[in-house]
Design a protein around this nucleic acid. Structure first.
Lengths: 340, 340
DNA sequence: TTGAAAGCGTTACCAA
DNA sequence: TTGGTAACGCTTTCAA
């Protein structure tokens, strides 16, 4: 059924009775070629199911039109791979990249040992790199940036770095979340997450700032260090209650998945949400409003963020300098917290 | 910081004082080259941060070592893009592909208009295609298969097709789910999903088969057609109860996300799960056990499935014929159903 | 065990 | 507005 000898540009040129140059230009919509001939050649290509060999054009143009997207997972937990938030970002990036004529090559940080810049850029696999998550080893990213590889990172945009970071205003997010709980009457608010982690650390800062402003006397800072997975959150909250009773009346969770874990631990103990404990998440994943009760959360706009990341990357591909960008966050009030 | 003139194989060869042939073979670990020289050349390459230009090798070898993974979304709903199940499959595929020396190029079906085979294969963007989801238009897939492009599809392995389909034993899954509810004492079991859709249709078959076997008198087949998103499920279930009251005591949901939607609709009406209504999902997404109550479900083993899909694809790349494969499913009993 | 050289299919410079 | 041709960087056949 399929032709034995793949049709090439030369073959198509012969068919059309013109030179390869002309066909090449026509198929690339080069205005140098008369519109008529351009269109007829494009039609001919379509009829013959011809498509340009990308390997060849990439070699010739030294450009791949591919962007490598690397999931920089903190740990190798299954959970973190399947975090809906991360995957949503990948989907959105794919969309934006495609709209800009780029394709998305997906990778895991632990698949590619070390030298990303070399692996992707020097090898002509991709023109640029988007890394999702700073992980703990910024050294790695520093190295990539220093190599001159076009690079954008999703993470904490306030962190000191020699590369462009796009990320949410995490401090503000933590602040808004905490303030919202305070306004709902919470007095003893738990922070559930890992303050050591860059983005979570910022959220924690916002949390403590809001607490300070509220001038609560005694036990202000209740931080329960916790990985960013539901499972761990579930366990930690269960443990905490077991050991110390219900010593809090509000939870600022570092992600919606973490909130989900906490939610379950509380519901199993018949603790009323939001009356006994108010709980607020972070991210606004698609299913946040489907939790029961629907989860109040701090929304990160992944669609917009993806657009910004791609913009900053394209800038670099055009030889311009890119910059870190802070994305707005938004409080989404639902049912897991009291409103005032 | 970065060198102006990229180092090429020829440059490296000059540096080493050998021919390009030798370096090429050495870097590709060709045993023709003496082990010593091979290793010293590899070391030299490392020292100089050299990496082979893939565009060039792809052009020369006519092989990309890239597999295109296409998310064939039924509709363009945001929800379906971010279905944790689909994305889990992508992650698992990435892992397996990498282990086999392939990279994953991610795509959406609605990004690439029509002619995938041409777009990915003839153009030397990828060596093969994995499509996740049959969608409704198998015609499209037929065309790709006919073009001779290496292709594996995740979907209903029992469907008539001229390409290799890997998928779960959906009929059995639906059967097991329904039987489990029956054994828990449910008499009026709702099927929540779209029987028109290939995989869901199979699940529905299993559902009716189990009902038939149980010889329930009156209203046996209670099917509530419903998209595969939580939101729609939530709305449909709410509506149904509003109109007809609580006319069921069990739900076989066509996916965990659908189950989640139903769960919420029921909980909002203070319907006890599993006592008033038992509910069972499909997929076993990571968060299934974090629902409250933890969701009983039919597990699809995405890790194994990914392995099988890649195997079947590699077969084709080696010129062998591939075949459809039926994957086992497993009943995972949790708290959203009664046990007997 | 190594080297010389052809060729993969484009693009883009230079010439017409 | 079009054509001829060199070059992109690698792999592999053939020869040594």
């Amino acid at each position: 059924m399929s032709n034995e000898n793949k049709l090439t540009l030369a073959g198509l040129a012969k068919l059309a009775g013109v030179s390869t140059s002309t066909v090449s230009r026509a198929l690339n919509d080069n205005p140098l070629i008369k519109k008529e001939t351009r269109e007829s050649l494009q039609a001919l290509a379509r009829e013959n199911n011809f498509s340009l060999n990308r390997a060849a054009s990439r070699l010739r143009t030294q450009k791949t039109n591919v962007i490598a997207v690397i999931l920089n997972l903190i740990d190798d937990t299954d959970q973190s791979i399947s975090d809906p938030f991360l995957l949503k970002v990948v989907g959105d990036l794919n969309q934006v990249l495609n709209q800009n004529g780029y394709e998305l090559l997906l990778s895991n940080s632990h698949m590619t040992h070390g030298d990303w810049a070399n692996y992707f850029i020097s090898s002509s696999r991709a023109d640029g790199i988007i890394v999702i998550g700073q992980g703990k080893d910024t050294i790695e990213l520093d190295k990539v940036a220093k190599s001159g590889a076009p690079l954008v990172v999703w993470g904490d945009p306030n962190a000191e770095s020699n590369y462009a970071v796009v990320g949410s205003n995490n401090d503000l997010g933590g602040y808004l979340a905490t303030k919202h709980l305070l306004e709902g009457g919470c007095k003893r608010i738990l922070f559930l997450g890992d303050p050591e982690h860059a983005e979570m650390g910022e959220r924690h800062k916002g949390y403590t700032r809001a607490l300070k402003e509220a001038k609560l006397g005694s036990n202000k800072d209740l931080t329960l260090p916790c990985d960013i997975t539901s499972k761990v959150a579930y366990e930690k909250v269960g443990e905490a209650i077991l050991n110390k009773g219900l010593f809090f009346d509000g939870i600022v969770a570092t992600s919606d998945m973490v909130a989900l874990g906490a939610l379950k631990a509380l519901k199993e103990r018949y603790i009323n949400i939001p009356n006994d404990v108010g709980i607020i998440g972070f991210d606004d994943i698609a299913m946040a409003e489907l939790f029961h009760p629907a989860l109040t959360t701090i929304k990160q706009d992944t669609k917009l963020a993806s657009k910004v990341m791609v913009e900053q990357l394209l800038k670099q591909l055009n030889g311009q300098a890119a910059e870190s960008v802070v994305m707005d966050v938004e409080l989404i009030k639902r049912k897991s917290t009291l409103s005032n």
